[in-house]
Amino acid sequence: MKRTLPYFFFLAAAFVASFFAQRVMAQTATPGTLTAEQATALKALKINNLEKDTYVKSGGFILERYEDRPAYVFNYSDGIKRKIYLYKVYSAADTKDLGLLAIYQNGKTNELKSFVIPGAAGEPKAWDAYLDDMKYVGEKEPGLMPALAFVISREMAMLMGGGAGKTEEGGAKKKEEYNFCFGPQSLVTLADGGSKAIVDVREGDVVMSYDAAKQALSGTRVTALNTHPMAGEATLVGIWTVPTNQLTASVALMPAPAQLLEATANHPVLTTTGRKALGEVAVGELVYRCENGATYLARVVRTGSTGRAAMVYSLTTEKGNYVVAGTVVLDK
Rank of each mutant, 00 (worst) to 15 (best):
L217N: 06
T33W: 04
F15C: 12
A191I: 10
W127G: 13
T95N: 15
F9V: 03
P229K: 11
P243T: 00
L34M: 15
A71N: 01
P229M: 11
Y87F: 15
W127A: 13
A258I: 02
Q38G: 11
G119Y: 12
R23D: 03
L45G: 04
Y322V: 03
G193I: 09
T30D: 15
A92V: 09
L297H: 07
A13C: 14
E155I: 02
G161K: 02
A126H: 01
V283Q: 14
P146K: 07
T95A: 14
K214N: 10
F115Q: 05
L101W: 00
D78W: 06
T317F: 04
T189F: 06
N266D: 14
P243E: 05
L236I: 04
A258R: 02
K319S: 14
G219H: 02
F182R: 01
N75Y: 09
K108Q: 13
P255R: 02
R275K: 10
W240S: 15
A71M: 03
A120E: 14
V89A: 03
G219T: 10
Y7C: 08
A263Q: 02
Y136R: 10
A197C: 00
N321P: 11
V116G: 13
K135V: 05
R308E: 12
P31A: 09
M1R: 06
T227P: 06
F74Y: 12
D133T: 13
Q259L: 13
A102E: 15
N106V: 09
A265P: 00
K140C: 03
Y87A: 09
F19C: 00
K88N: 13
E67M: 11
R202N: 07
Y322L: 08
R308F: 04
G143Y: 08
T227L: 08
G238Y: 05
I239H: 00
G165T: 04
A129N: 11
F150H: 14
L112H: 14
A36L: 03
A21M: 14
T28I: 00
A216V: 14
I239P: 00
V328Q: 06
W127I: 13
D132V: 15
L131A: 11
S314D: 15
K113R: 13
A191P: 03
T248Y: 07
K43D: 14
V269Q: 01
F19A: 08
Y210W: 12
Q105A: 04
A44V: 02
E203M: 10
L236C: 05
T28D: 04
